[in-house]
C-alpha cells in the first residue's frame, strides 16, 4: 500500500459532513440514544457529548475510515470523549501514585506505579451511577440478573442460563434495561 492509498482511506471533513447530513430519522434517534449512554459514563449531558463529537469530526481532529458506518464512527468518538473526561477528573492523579522501592546494586531505586486512569472520585461516581441504576430494577429479578451478568462480563448464553431466560426473553430484558438506562442518563444530566 502506498502513501496515496493510505490517505484515501479516511473521509475528509466535507465527506464526513455529507455522511452525517444523509442520516435518516432512526439514525438521528440512535445517535441520541448512544450519546445518552456515553454521557452517563462521565456524568455529562448527552447534548454536550454529541456536540463535541460532531465538532471533532468537522475539524478533522478525528478521522472516519471510508468503510466505517458514520454512526459507529461517532459512537467511537463519543466513547473517546467520555474516557477523556473521566481521565481529566478533578482529583490530582499524582495523589494516587504508588511508590515502589527496589534494592539494586546501585542502591535503593524508587519507581512509581501509576494507577489505572480513574481516580477514587471517579470510581465513586461510577459506583453511584451503577447503584442508582440497580435501584430502578429493585424487585425485577430477571433484569437484575442480566444487569449483574453484564457488569461481570459474563457471556450472554451464561447469563441466560443463570437467569433462566431463553434468547427472546433475554433480548427483551436487555432492551428494557437499555431504555431505562437511557432515561436515567437523560434525567440524571438535568438534575
Amino acid at each position: 500500500m502506498n502513501i496515496l492509498d493510505a490517505s484515501c482511506e479516511t473521509l475528509n471533513p466535507d465527506e464526513t459532513r455529507v455522511a452525517i447530513e444523509s442520516l435518516r430519522d432512526p439514525d438521528w434517534l440512535k445517535l441520541r440514544k448512544i450519546a445518552s449512554i456515553h454521557a452517563s459514563r462521565c456524568k455529562a449531558n448527552w447534548e454536550d457529548i454529541l456536540n463535541e463529537a460532531f465538532c471533532r469530526a468537522l475539524e478533522d481532529r478525528r478521522k472516519c475510515k471510508k468503510n466505517l458506518n458514520i454512526i459507529v464512527f461517532l459512537d467511537g468518538t463519543m466513547r473517546s470523549i467520555a474516557n477523556y473526561r473521566n481521565k481529566a477528573s478533578k482529583s490530582d492523579p499524582l495523589e494516587h501514585v504508588i511508590p515502589i522501592f527496589k534494592e539494586t546494586d546501585e542502591g535503593l531505586v524508587i519507581t512509581v506505579d501509576l494507577p489505572d486512569n480513574c481516580t477514587p472520585d471517579n470510581e465513586l461516581e461510577a459506583q453511584q451511577t451503577l447503584e442508582s441504576f440497580e435501584e430502578l430494577f429493585d424487585g425485577d429479578d430477571e433484569a437484575t440478573m442480566v444487569l449483574m451478568g453484564h457488569q461481570d462480563n459474563l457471556p450472554p448464553n451464561e447469563i441466560q442460563e443463570l437467569a433462566g431466560l431463553n434468547k427472546t426473553q433475554y433480548a427483551t430484558v436487555l432492551r428494557r434495561i437499555r431504555r431505562r438506562f437511557e432515561k436515567l442518563a437523560t434525567e440524571g444530566a438535568t438534575k
Binding site: 448512544i34 456515553h38 470510581e123 461510577a126 457488569q151 432492551r175
Partner: peptide, 26 residues
C-alpha cells in the same frame, strides 16, 4: 472496579442498540 463494570454495561447496551431495527427504534 465500578468504572469497568459501568463501561462494560454501557458497551453492551450500545451493542443492543445496533441490533435494534429502525422500526423498533422509531
Amino acid at each position: 472496579s465500578p468504572r469497568k463494570k459501568l463501561d462494560r454495561l454501557a458497551d453492551k447496551l450500545i451493542d443492543d442498540l445496533y441490533e435494534t431495527s429502525d422500526e423498533e427504534i422509531m
